[in-house]
């Protein structure tokens, strides 16, 4: 089975500075691996199986070797992908990148909390079924068995290929690649391509950013001081709320 794992397709919120007036300044505009990306790679490797093929797909000037150090055999990088507020635009670029890879059975995308529409929109653009919110996946006959949780229910969804999985991390990455794997990754092939080569139209943006502000509810009542005093203040507040 051939899996494409999409990684480092968005800026990290950690690269942003929020000023006191609510303005945002990006220290690092470069796409970086998201918190769900390690889980996406793990799911892609699990679905592809030991005889399968995992191809990485990344956007902009991200570090393409990130997934290569984690088991992807090769990677495609779309060099001029725009950073768009419209997640449909991001998904269209990713879908075009997927189409540039032959005979793909499954696309795995981190089901990012900050961008929860992208994984589903990639499937919509490709016309493939989508399972989002996945925590683990495995091959199952001609398809995939994907596990996710909804409240106190565990759902096991079986879907035929080709399909798209949105994978949400259950924990931090358990093992980061060592120096040997990182060096080997830099020798693996990376194909660079452009929107024009992929046939992606660069239409005028339908979404125009109009600025940011701090949320209105800076509502936390914070107690500071000696523990005995702050504990009494908190208990009194919680009693007043009627929750004790």
């Amino acid at each position: 089975m051939r899996a494409v794992v999409v990684y480092a397709w968005a800026r990290s919120a950690a690269g942003a500075i929020v000023h006191a007036d609510g303005g945002v300044e990006w220290r690092h505009a470069r796409p970086v691996a998201g918190e769900d990306d390690p889980a996406a790679v793990a799911a892609a490797l699990a679905v592809a199986g030991p005889d399968g093929d995992v191809v990485g797909l990344t956007l902009g000037d991200a570090d393409a070797s990130w997934a290569l150090a984690r088991g992807a055999a090769r990677a495609v990088r779309v060099t001029d992908a725009p950073a768009s507020d419209d997640e449909g635009v991001t998904a269209a670029v990713i879908a075009a990148g997927v189409r540039s890879v032959a005979d793909v059975d499954v696309v795995v995308v981190g089901d990012s909390e900050e961008h929860p529409g992208v994984a589903a929109a990639v499937g919509a653009r490709l016309g493939w079924p989508v399972v989002a919110g996945v925590v683990s996946a495995a091959p199952s006959g001609a398809g995939i068995e994907a596990v996710r949780r909804a409240g106190d229910v565990q759902e096991t969804v079986v879907v035929t290929c080709p399909a798209v999985l949105g994978v949400a991390a259950e924990g931090a990455e358990s093992r980061t690649p060592g120096m040997k794997e990182q060096l080997a990754a830099r020798k693996r092939p990376v194909v660079t391509t452009t929107l024009a080569e992929l046939g992606v139209d660069t239409l005028p943006a339908a979404v125009v950013a109009g600025g940011t502000r701090l949320p209105e509810q800076a509502r936390t009542r914070v107690f500071e001081g000696e523990p005995e005093q702050t504990a009494r203040q908190l208990v009194a507040a919680l009693r007043a709320e009627g929750v004790l």
């Binding site: 507020d85 449909g88 929860p116």
Partner: peptide
């Protein structure tokens, strides 16, 4: 929830709609 947003993303394409989250 994952299922609802999957339905939404699918609907966005034929509508030609921008997708915001």
């Amino acid at each position: 929830d994952p299922a609802s947003r999957t339905l939404l993303a699918a609907a966005a394409v034929p509508l030609g709609a921008a997708l915001l989250t």
